[in-house]
């Protein structure tokens, strides 16, 4: 019996997972354990599955995912900090048949870009906005974010976030869900296989909304970890996220088909 080589194993019929061709082969710049890479992949899988490779235009942010355009293999523009929704607005208005999405972190979308976020959502731009919330500024070295939890330690809240002097964590997703210009608003996670599958369904729904010409923004928050910024090992950071982030940033749909979801 002939020996089985690696080439024999790597046959299409034996592959249980194939990386979407819409992710480049570049090494991700993210820390091991970070959720960004998974979120990128899900978006690109959805774009590929919807057959939109040649019609997708993405807007990358400033922050850890500043190089998102290196990894997502579609036409991409790199925005200034916080301005992605403004870029996406014009791209979609001038190319209504294209599939337009923005990708931003919490500092980008919920602090410096608050005005652009609120107004793109309020105008009801037909775009997909992806919001990665890990409660910290990762790229600049772990400073306090608008979404940093009460008491949470960061390099600019070294004794914990004091709500009296530093203000409250901003629930941007709850806020935009209230605006008439949002059509679909959901909060998901990508830290377990089941969460990933669910998040992907939501991302697909968001992009499908745009393809179907549904009125308004489809807004997806992904609560994610930042193990290096939180100074934890990846597994510990995911447990910490479940125990601390999820109670504050509750997962699930906030608005579906333009209707607010009733809390049970």
């Amino acid at each position: 019996m002939a020996e089985i080589t690696l080439q024999d194993i790597i046959k299409p019929e034996n592959q249980v997972y194939v990386k979407t061709k819409l992710m480049t082969d570049k090494n991700l710049s993210y820390c091991p354990g970070c959720g960004h890479g998974t979120a990128h992949r899900l978006i690109m899988e959805v774009v590929e599955e919807l057959g939109q490779e040649n019609d997708a235009i993405g807007i990358a942010p400033v922050g850890c995912s500043v190089l998102a355009y290196e990894f997502m293999n579609v036409d991409m523009q790199e925005a200034a900090h916080g301005r992605a929704p403004a870029l996406a607005t014009a791209v979609k208005r001038l190319w209504p048949n294209k599939l337009v999405f923005s990708y931003q972190g919490d500092g980008d979308l919920a602090a410096i870009g608050t005005a652009e976020t609120i107004h793109a959502c309020n105008r009801g731009e037909q775009i997909v906005m992806v919001f990665i919330n890990n409660g910290i500024y990762g790229m600049t070295g772990g400073q306090m974010a608008p979404t940093t939890l009460p008491g949470m330690k960061t390099s600019t809240s070294p004794y914990g976030r004091d709500l009296q002097s530093m203000g409250n964590p901003l629930k941007m997703t709850e806020l935009v869900a209230q605006l008439p210009g949002t059509y679909y608003v959901t909060r998901q996670a990508v830290h377990t296989p089941s969460a990933v599958r669910k998040a992907k369904r939501c991302i697909r729904k968001a992009f499908q909304n745009q393809l179907d010409g549904k009125p308004g923004v489809s807004f997806i928050e992904i609560v994610s970890n930042c193990n290096s910024g939180w100074k934890m090992e990846p597994v510990a950071s995911n447990i910490w996220m479940e125990e601390n982030m999820f109670p504050y940033y509750e997962l699930g749909d906030l608005k579906v088909d333009g209707q607010l979801v009733e809390k049970k």
Partner: peptide, 26 residues
Amino acid sequence: MVVLQAESEVASINMLYGGGGTGKKV
């Protein structure tokens, strides 16, 4: 021609970035 009143001059110049980046006259 599309005309849009933005929420600020910051937003309008960045709309130009987005639109101009697609090859349109903005």
